[in-house]
Structure formats: C-alpha cells, structure tokens
Design a protein around this nucleic acid. Structure first.
Ligand code: ZN
Ligand code: ZN
Ligand code: ZN
Ligand code: ZN
Lengths: 135, 135
DNA sequence: TAATGTTTTGTTATATTATAACAATGTGTA
DNA sequence: TACACATTGTTATAATATAACAAAACATTA
C-alpha cells in the first residue's frame, strides 16, 4: 500500500502525518517547539508549519491540547474522534498526563446544565494531583 | 481606614491591589499585557510586575486563570477562596466567561475517581458554547 | 485532459505570552 | 535594633503563537 493511500485513510497530509507520528509515539505531552526541533530533520523548518498541523490534528480529534501546559498528546480514546469533550489527569510533580475515559464522567458533563438551564456539549477538564509513582 | 489597613485585610500588596481592582471591575477576562497597559499610569511598567501580582492573586484564590484564553477574571464565588477547583462557561462567539457555581458539579468532581481509584481535589473545567445573547 | 476551487506548503517577519537574574526596598516580628 | 522574608524595580531574554503572501499539491468535474 502506498504512503499516499495510507495518508488518505487518515486524511492526513505529509506534515500532519509526520507530526502526528511523533506525538503518537511520545510517552509524554509535547510542546510545539519541541516538536519543531524533532521534525527539522524531516524538512519542517518553521513554527507555522508545526502550528498548522497541530491545529488540524486537534480539529479532527487525533490529538488534544493540554491547555494548562501548552502541550499536545495523541488521543487514545476511540470515543472522542471529534475534539469536543476531553478530560485529563495531570501529575503536578512529574507532569505525566493521562486521558480519562469514563462513561459516567462524560455523561454527567454532557448533561450538566448551568443556572440558566444551558447545556454544553463541548468541554475540557483537567484534574491535578499526584500520579502513582509520585505519591 | 487607611489604605495600608485595607490592604492588610486582604493581604494584598500595592501592586497586587492595583491589579486586582482592575480585574475585579472588568466585565470580561483580562490578558496580562492588557492589564499592563491599563496600569502603566499607576507606575507599573514591566510585564514581570504584572505576572508576579497575577501569580499571587491566583495562588490565594482572588482571581482565576482561564487557561484556554490566557486571561484572568476575579473570583466571585465565596466558596472557592483557595484556587483548587474551578469551572467556567465560555462563549465561543463573544468570549464572555462566567464562573460556574454549582454544588452538584463541585461535589461530583471532588468525588470523581479515575480507573485506579484516584481522587483529585484540584481541577479546572471549561465548558464551551454560546451565551444567551449569541444564541 | 484541462479548468477550477480548495487545501497544503514554504517563507519571512512579527506579535503575544512568560520567565531569568539581580539589586533594592519595604514589612513583620523578635 | 536585627533578622527573615515578601515585594518591588529593572533589563534582558525565552517561549508560544500568528500575519501575510506566494507557490505547489490535490481533488472535482467539465
Ligand atoms: Zn481523546
Ligand atoms: Zn508523577
Ligand atoms: Zn472562584
Ligand atoms: Zn456570547
């Protein structure tokens, strides 16, 4: 199978694929300029090339941005291929980040109504604490 | 009552008080450099002076940071004078931000356990949608 | 194939957000 | 007073992100 065919399956362009692969195989969230440094040998030279790929990957739900850390991780939660409802746990010592996949939590938040009765289908939740190792 | 006395009540230093007052009277979240611009006439000239005050104000729970917007709002929720559990609704059109004060929500999140049975007392939740006006 | 619109890329420059390092001053308390 | 500690002032710099424009690649269909 040709690479272009594989890319088409995932709807990823060349730069998007390079950057997704890097994030996907990383064991920790990656920052934009760390990504840039890592992909320079593959011909991606400018910040904007990285940010454009990141924007697209977030938009299609392949990666998520950890807002409090300005960093990106791959989504391993098959139920959130659209980037609209995310939850993470973040260790305040080692900065390990894990995506939380909880049917109960997502149901609760998707059904949450504020004082005006307003419901929100899109949210981002970041829990902070100490991971197993750091406790 | 002297100003120094008032400051003492709130434990705010001069710069902290100036910056808190500005944020507190603002109807929208303020960004650090917008704050800097606004307080230059009061003698605060450098970014670091702003960031130091912001850090302290966040730490003592007088203000919160809206992570997805890099902006700050005053806390009007008497139950969260320590900055550890925050929830906001954010309008994706007009960028209006409201702090959510829901006993049910905070109870649910404070008691939430992940797959490993881990509880998190600190979290930040950002809901996105359209406010009343923008709907 | 050729024409067309759309997405992606490449590139330079610049804007925005945030911290490092160090010296000086103020504040509370013993 | 003397001491510890928090706060301030200042310059420089690091880190994060976008503007603007031109060229190339890709998809759709005439
Ligand atoms: Zn996900
Ligand atoms: Zn840890
Ligand atoms: Zn609050
Ligand atoms: Zn609105």
């Amino acid at each position: 199978m040709r690479i272009s065919k594989i890319n088409k399956m995932h709807n990823l362009s060349k730069n998007q694929q390079i950057i997704f692969d890097l994030i996907d195989k990383s064991s920790e969230p990656l920052k934009a300029y760390a990504i840039l440094f890592n992909v320079q040998k593959k011909g991606i030279k400018a910040p904007l090339q990285v940010y454009r790929a990141l924007d697209k990957l977030v938009e299609i739900g392949k990666i998520h941005k950890i807002e409090s850390r300005n960093a990106f991780i791959a989504c391993h939660n098959s139920s959130c291929q659209v980037a609209k409802a995310t939850a993470f746990s973040i260790c305040e010592i080692c900065e390990k980040v894990t995506e939380i996949s909880s049917a109960g939590l997502s149901k609760y938040l998707a059904n949450f109504k504020d004082k005006d009765g307003m419901k929100y289908s899109k949210y981002n939740l970041e829990f902070f604490g100490l991971c197993k190792k750091c406790r």
